[in-house]
């Protein structure tokens, strides 16, 4: 049984259907990537998993237990944590306060400082900036903070939505290095990316989403070699 399973997921915005029966699974310790063009339904899929959108039909199962009827904050406490697209750090809270909020569901007082320390080890820049308001950080630092904040909850599955969006190439590398490092530490990740090339380099497996449907899936190597994928998403003609 996979750690996270999405079965026949249908989501619509009012009258407009966005997902038509998406199926995917993420096994423990895997990085799975969801690639696709703008508007294919990648973010919609993540938001439905997180409970920010209520699916019309379908199941989202963590360790075999359906989450699709739970409110977002309970889905987080079950261990499915999303780092949203556009980072969404709390601009008027300090870096430290943002991390504390990431650990909102964590029980036990001693655990929070321990996890903050882990995040600081992963992102030393955040330690330097810990007293600063998050709104004063650069885009790359905000992305680090958003990821660190997501890790605070101790996720069973980390959902990363477009972590490289809008970042300078050098920072994109840093972010993907971090993803690899989290992977080597055993974190399970579902990664949504426009940058399919980078995503397929770090991922174990991938799904290609097109207008709300999974049209292709396979190991990262298979997808990288697939003609349609090369043409449409990797820019190789």
């Amino acid at each position: 049984m996979a750690l996270l399973e999405v079965r026949n997921l249908h989501v619509s915005y009012g009258q407009i259907a966005a997902l038509h029966g998406v199926e995917l699974e993420v096994n423990e310790r895997e990085i799975v990537t969801l690639i696709g063009a703008n508007g294919a339904g990648k973010t919609t899929t993540l938001n439905a998993i997180s409970g920010l959108l209520r699916p019309d039909r379908g199941l989202v199962m963590l360790e075999g237990i359906d989450l699709s009827t739970l409110p977002p904050h309970q889905i987080v406490s079950r261990g499915v944590v999303q780092v949203p697209e556009g980072r969404h750090v709390f601009a008027r809270l300090t870096v430290l306060e943002n991390l504390e909020m990431g650990g909102f569901t964590v029980r036990g007082k001693a655990e929070i400082p321990r996890r903050i320390e882990q995040v600081f080890e992963l992102f030393p820049r955040l330690r330097e900036r810990r007293g600063q308001l998050a709104g004063t950080l650069s885009g790359g630092e905000q992305q680090m903070l958003a990821m660190g904040r997501g890790l605070m909850a101790g996720p069973k599955v980390l959902l990363l939505d477009e972590p490289s969006m809008g970042l300078a190439p050098v920072l994109v590398d840093t972010i993907f290095d971090t993803v690899r490092r989290l992977h080597s530490q055993g974190t399970t990740i579902l990664l949504v990316e426009q940058n399919a090339r980078m995503a397929l380099q770090v991922a174990d497996r991938g799904y290609v989403l097109q207008t709300g449907r999974v049209v292709l899936s396979g190991t990262a190597a298979e997808l990288q070699a697939h003609d349609a994928v090369r043409e449409a998403y990797l820019g190789v003609g």
Partner: peptide, 10 residues
């Protein structure tokens, strides 16, 4: 500041 992000923190 941000209701959706707060919900994603649990």
């Amino acid at each position: 500041e941000d209701k959706a992000a707060a919900a994603l923190m649990g």
